[in-house]
Design a protein around this nucleic acid. Structure first.
Lengths: 313, 313
DNA sequence: TCAAAAATGGAAATCCTCTTCGAAATTGAC
DNA sequence: GTCAATTTCGAAGAGGATTTCCATTTTTGA
């Protein structure tokens, strides 16, 4: 863990920020050509605020980094650059590039913020958590314990930070829609599948865009102005979901999104969105939080619709 | 932060424990001449217990170290050896000596314990999860709280009663199968869909019997003696799942089942089965427990298969 | 479709950290 | 007070970790 003292970031080629970000910054702080140094976040919270602003358009790998930093601050604080790079699925050099983008001297400099943050917010944690009590005996039981813990952690996170306003606005949009389309690929598909089933059982007409027969775009092509689309999407956002949502957006449908970071490409297209972060264990990711929030959405839609019908009489 | 792999602590002169401690240990574990390695703590808690025992008489500098480790675990986890040494008021080499005293390969090895501890107990540290506190205000939030509580209850129940033997037998069956078929209708479908995805991502060939095009029976009709079928089924058992499983049974495939009661019609047909009970809230049922158990199964199968392959070489 | 610009991957170079080891200082027994 | 055993110090070497650089790939804009 190098704690380099020198901060004489030479304007080397590799140190230049990606274009979108440079434009962004120069646009805001008009005329500061070499200016990213000025915007270097001084605390973890500042960094988080910058990342969350959502106005930054990162290229693929840098976005991957941003998402990982957002979701695993403790791993960033405690790991080496190699470990962090592996977990984030990028090259070590990408992390350095990312750090320089924000005016840090290098990864170590950036990591300092995370260390300070962990140090500052840690003392409460002592002597808690016995998740692996009887699990020691069998390795597979240990894994089961980990998976369950991840699910629990995901559920806990809902309680900690939940955007009630967005959530209720999403219900509003879906309840007001003529027909509800559901889109979710890969990991998100089980979620949309369950929501679709539940909606149908509750008498709410809906279309699950499952891409059977590769007809997803044709299905979405029928979406109209009065319809709404519920998209569920997790990083990496490399499935067809963004493309499908883009089509719906063009056709002026209302779009509401459940996603796991503010960097989701769906957010700019969405009328309302809500962030749901799922924990994972050994790379196996929970769906517990997304399912819960999704079910609550469905319930809200059903409740609102039947309330509306009652009033209409 | 060097994560050294070699643990071949040669009995170099500097590595010998100070006299008081050696006496202490030899007194307790009578006769273990080279024994400090045996007492190497495996977790932070273990180390803390040893330090707390109070029976150890350290020389001045080493005592200084012990006190610092006790009082500033977070600084130990996050700092370099030089930083820790400075803060503790000792030489870096003293920290290494201290670590070796307890059988660690060096400071990095010791520090690993502190890192794990911080990592493990950190996420909980911020704002203690109060999911249903302000929920009273909004009806929909109350519902979300209920759904989350149901998911939690489902997860809790796994810990309470879990048939380990059946679970491991199921892994055995699936790992030994030529091809794995997955069957689950309605509510169970999201579970099988996610398991199918995960299996594929882990390189385990599988067939998700999704009944697209109403071809489920034709698909199952191809199952053979060397194959296995994982069925997921919840009450009421009125879907096509029992019929599909019956076909597989006739064709002498091995059948393992995740179900929610001993009355499931699948149980007589199954080689092994496991009970997973999902809680519900206002009729909206959780899938958290089934997904967790399913994922653990997948992981077990992957682990067992790769272990088998390793042995085969 | 092509050219230019940007972003990425990967290996070499550099720098720092951790560890080792001998010398100096301290302790305690006789 | 002296000697031997133990502990501490601090410099130097070995080994990683971080950073830099450039060839290659990807994206952007005309």
């Amino acid at each position: 863990m190098a704690e380099r003292k020198k901060a004489d970031a030479k304007p080397a080629r590799g140190a230049e920020p990606p274009r979108e970000i440079r434009d962004e910054v120069e646009g805001e702080a008009s005329g500061r050509k070499s200016a990213l140094g000025y915007t270097k976040p001084r605390t973890y919270e500042e960094l988080r605020a910058v990342l969350a602003s959502g106005t930054l358009h990162f290229p693929k790998r840098l976005r991957q980094v941003a998402i990982f930093l957002w979701q695993h601050p403790d791993d960033v604080a405690l790991g080496t650059i190699v470990q962090v790079a592996e977990q984030a699925g990028v090259q070590p050099s990408t992390l350095v590039r990312f750090a320089k983008t924000f005016g840090f001297a290098g990864f170590s400099d950036l990591q300092g913020l995370f260390k300070d943050h962990v140090k500052g917010s840690w003392p409460e944690a002592r002597g808690r958590a016995e998740p692996t009590s009887r699990s020691e005996t069998h390795a597979e039981l240990h894994f089961l314990g980990g998976i369950v813990a991840a699910a629990r952690a995901s559920l806990d996170r809902i309680g900690e930070s939940f955007d009630v306003a967005s959530f209720e606005a999403m219900i509003e949009v879906l309840a007001g829609a003529d027909l509800i389309y559901l889109v979710g690929s890969k990991r998100a598909f089980p979620v949309t599948a369950y929501l679709s089933l539940t909606l149908s059982q509750q008498g709410v007409r809906n279309v699950l865009v499952d891409n059977v027969g590769s007809t997803a775009f044709d299905q979405i092509g029928c979406i109209g102005r009065g319809d709404a689309l519920l998209a569920v999407s997790f990083s990496p956002y490399n499935s067809i979901t963004p493309d499908l949502v883009a089509v719906a957006h063009e056709r002026s449908a209302q779009i509401v999104t459940i996603t796991d970071s503010t960097f989701s490409p769906l957010i700019p297209l969405s009328t309302r969105w809500i962030e749901v972060i799922e924990s994972d264990f050994a790379g196996f990711r929970s769906l517990a939080a997304s399912l819960s929030v999704g079910m609550a959405l469905v319930h809200g839609v059903v409740a609102k619709r039947s309330a509306g019908r009652r009033q209409a009489r």
